[in-house]
Every structure is written in C-alpha cells, then in structure tokens.
Design a protein around this nucleic acid. Structure first.
Length: 469
DNA sequence: GGCCAATGCTTGTAGTTGGC
DNA sequence: GCCAACTACAAGCATTGGCC
C-alpha cells in the first residue's frame, strides 16, 4: 500500500512538473517563463553592456522591448503562438526561452541557441550550415557556464546511482575528445529542462525519456539549431538517460528515430568529385627548404618535418602530435604513435632512405634532432627549443600551415589535405588496392578510400577518353 | 602567445535490409 | 544463409575564437 501511495505521489509530481501538463496550463506557464526570461535578458544586457551601443544589443532590445510594457502578455502570447501554432498539441508546445544572442536581424529572424556556431562559419570549411557572424563579446562566458552545468548535471546523475567520485572520473576519462562535446550538449539540455520549470530531481521521475528527448529535439528545430547540434544533443542526452539506467529501447524509440531522420540524413557527407592539389607542390617546396636548413626558423623547420611525415606516412596531425621517434642503427627512423581510429591503435612506421633525400622524412627527422644540444636529445619529439617546452597541437598546426602557404597551396586546403593529396597521388600512380589500403591504414580500406580519396582520378580517365587515336 | 573550449567534419563500427 | 549496400551511432580530428 505504501508503495502504491509513493508511486501515486511521484506520478502527481511528474504530471505537475514535466511532460503531461494540459495544453492550457503549459501555455500559461510558458508565457510566464517567457516574460521572466526576456526581462532577465534585458537586465543582463543593461548591466553587462551598459554604454555600449552595439547593434546586437539594439536588435535584441528592439525585438524584446514590448515584453516590458503593459502589453507584455499579448505580445508574448502572439510571439509564442507564432512559434508553436494556435492549436497546441501535448508534445509540440514546449518552448525554450529565446536565445540571448541574435544574429543580424536585417535579413531574417533566425534564432540559434548555440551562438558559437555562428562565429565558426567564417571558416572556409564551414560550408554546409549557413549562418551569420555576430559580435562575440561575452558569448564565451555563457557557453563555458553551460558546459560546467552540463558536467555538474552528468556527475549528479551518476551520484544518484551511488557512483563514487573516482568511478565518475573514470567514466569521464574513458572519453577522449567526446567528453567536451557531451558536457556542452548536456548543459544545453539542462537549460531547456530548467527553463521548462523543472528541477534536476525531476529527472529522477521521468518515465518516458524518449518523449523528453523528442521534445528537446523539437525545440532545437524550432530554434533553427544546426543539424550537427541537434544530432549531438540527441546523442549526448540519450547517453545521459542511458547512464541514468534507462534501457536503449526506452531512450531511443521509434518516434525519436523518426524525428531524427531529417537532421541525421542532412549530415551525411555528399559524395562529390572535388579537385585536390598535387602533392608535388608541397614536396618541391620541402626540397627547396632542404637547401637552406641553417636559415630555417624553428617553426618552419618543424612544419617541414611534420609535412614530410604526413605526406609519406598519411598520418593525421593529431597522430603526429602523439608521435615518439627512435633512430635505428642503419640510419632509418621509426615513429611510434597511437591511431585511435583503427582496431590496432599502436602503430610503428619505419622511414628508410628515398631516392630524393631532400623530401625524405628520415632526412628531416635526423636534422630536426641535430639542431638540439646534448641535453635536449632526450626531450620529446616536438620539443620547442626557443620556448623550452613541448610544442602544443596548435603550434604544430600553425607550423604546417606556414609551410602550406609558402608552398602556394590555396588557403581553403586544410592540414588534413596533405593526407588526402598523398593518397590521391597513390591512386593516380596506379598503386594496387592492397597497397593503398596498407598505406592509408584505414580500418575499412576499400570503401573509405573510394569515398574520401578517389578525387582526381575521374578527371584523368575523362582526359584519356577524350584523346583520339 | 598559450591554452582551453566549442563545434563542424570525418570515419570506424555495428545493425538492418534486401536480393540472390 | 550469405553478402553487399545502406544507415545510425559514436567518437576522434581539425579548426577557430576567446580569455588570460
């Protein structure tokens, strides 16, 4: 009997707090939250950015000011209605508070809760998700805070399951880069959850996690979040509920799968023929560098060594950064690294002399170590002499970019393009499939190479088709 | 300038489906 | 039952902006 009462009490709280409110009650609460949220945002801007007549602030205030007037409710109502439609259905009326940062309102009213993505799209790589640039001021505080809250929520969930601090840390450490993504997306969910009027403890009362995630995804779509962001959020929150103890079936049901079809398919890489520069451009530049080793600044020298390694070992920059190097008695050099994307991550690559000494990784590695004095010989491979510390990933990245730009490679080509160009050259030179698979070290060699690297070959075939006897 | 964090892009893996 | 193609998921990599 006590058990039944306990369940009824929990069910009652659940009905009050999360997903099964009546449409009217939810609608009224949304209006109150909306007003409260808007007012707090305006206050935030007034205090944080007082005196700065930024266009961004003016835009936001211009759009939100009516909320502070006597016609608040009506305006707010009409705004919400326009967002969610006049006829509210139980699963479509959740509305996340309007994001603080708004892009240029001269064009459309695109609202993106995830403001950093707007800053990123100035890069030539960001081509699939069109967004606009906006003032970055104070944005980062908000995002960092969001990540922290996500981390706290994740840890809190595991603590409810009696995980010790050490056990929680081990769970987190089992991720490499993915954790940074998860904590951010969980933070985004935490914002959604609390703005809905829920508390963290209400998560313990959720009976249908699929509905919660679906509502969250629907809200992200309404806010015109990017497909990438929607997918990442879905993955992170699904993982969170899994950690909470829900089965995969409960978390990732058919309705959610249906909801995710569009953003998932939008992320699939388009298979298109795109040109890549000839690797020879880079190799010729390395050759010219080899003629004047003594005059090379340290960053250029490092960039040359890395470029040579990437061209002849098809390693990714992150893998090169993890490298250690050992000389062999016959003058060859071995690189030891961890390739996390393969089934057997520990990898050793041996560089032996090439016919062209000046572009050979062996030549560049041996000279890289010759620059050091005796004390520095045992320092890490990417030891920065002038800074007296190991070079960071970003420094390696900059060093390679220097070399690529000097070589005349167009700026839109990224660091990983060295790997692409190298494998493409192999294909051009009619290396066998087996050779290419071994060289590229892809787990699923044939399919991956065909999809990602078989770039210039079709042009070559067409050229040859066009030649008459 | 160095470091950190966010996030788009890439790619490996496992599961599903359909043809034979 | 086998196999290949397709798909979703998960996580690593690359790039970049902001803060100190």
């Amino acid at each position: 009997m006590a058990g039944i009462l306990w369940r009824l009490r929990n069910l009652s709280r659940y009905l009050r707090g999360s997903t099964i409110l009546t449409a009217n009650a939810r609608f009224n609460r949304l209006i109150r939250q909306q007003e409260k949220s808007e007012m707090s945002k305006i206050r935030w801007y007034q205090t944080r950015r007082l005196g700065r007549e930024s266009r961004l602030t003016r835009n936001i205030l211009a759009r939100r000011t009516p909320l502070s007037s006597s016609s608040n409710s009506n305006n707010s109502c009409s705004f919400i209605k326009s967002q969610i439609g006049e006829s509210l259905s139980p699963n479509s009326y959740t509305l996340l508070a309007i994001p603080i940062m708004v892009a240029d309102t001269n064009s459309n009213d695109k609202q993106i809760d995830n403001s950093r993505q707007e800053l990123k799209n100035s890069s030539p790589r960001r081509q699939d998700e069109k967004t606009k640039t906006t003032s970055p001021s104070r944005l980062d505080d908000n995002l960092r805070d969001r990540g922290d809250r996500g981390e706290r929520l994740f840890k809190w969930i595991l603590k409810q399951r009696q995980f010790t601090d050490a056990a929680i840390e081990q769970v987190i450490q089992s991720w490499f880069e993915a954790w940074q993504r998860h904590r951010q997306q969980i933070g985004q969910f935490e914002e959604f959850w609390t703005r809905e009027g829920n508390k963290w403890t209400d998560l313990m009362l959720v009976l249908d996690p699929e509905a919660v995630i679906s509502n969250f995804v629907a809200q992200l779509k309404a806010d015109e979040a990017t497909n990438s962001n929607i997918n990442n959020c879905k993955i992170a929150i699904g993982m969170l509920f899994n950690m909470q103890g829900f089965s995969e079936v409960k978390v990732n049901g058919q309705a959610l799968k249906q909801t995710m079809k569009q953003p998932s398919s939008a992320l699939r890489k388009e298979h298109k023929e795109e040109p890549i520069y000839k690797l020879d451009i880079l190799l010729k530049h390395l050759q010219s560098k080899a003629q004047r080793l003594d005059q090379l600044p340290e960053m250029e020298f490092m960039g040359s060594v890395i470029s040579s390694i990437m061209a002849f070992a098809t390693l990714r920059l992150a893998e090169v950064h993890r490298d250690t190097a050992t000389p062999l008695p016959d003058g060859a050099w071995q690189l030891h690294t961890i390739i996390r994307k393969t089934k057997v991550p520990k990898t050793t690559i041996t560089f032996r002399p090439l016919c062209n000494r000046d572009i050979c990784p062996m030549f560049w590695l041996s000279n890289w170590f010759k620059r050091r004095n005796k004390k520095q010989q045992n320092q890490p491979l990417w030891w920065h002499k002038s800074r007296k510390k190991e070079a960071t990933y970003e420094q390696l990245y900059k060093a390679v970019n220097i070399i690529m730009q000097e070589a005349g490679i167009e700026k839109q080509n990224t660091v990983i393009s060295i790997r692409k160009s190298s494998i493409t050259k192999d294909i051009d030179q009619r290396a066998t499939q087996q050779q290419i698979n071994r060289f590229s070290m892809h787990a699923d060699g044939a399919a991956t190479v065909q999809f990602h690297y078989d770039m210039n070959l079709n042009d070559d075939i067409r050229e040859r088709l066009a030649i008459f006897e």
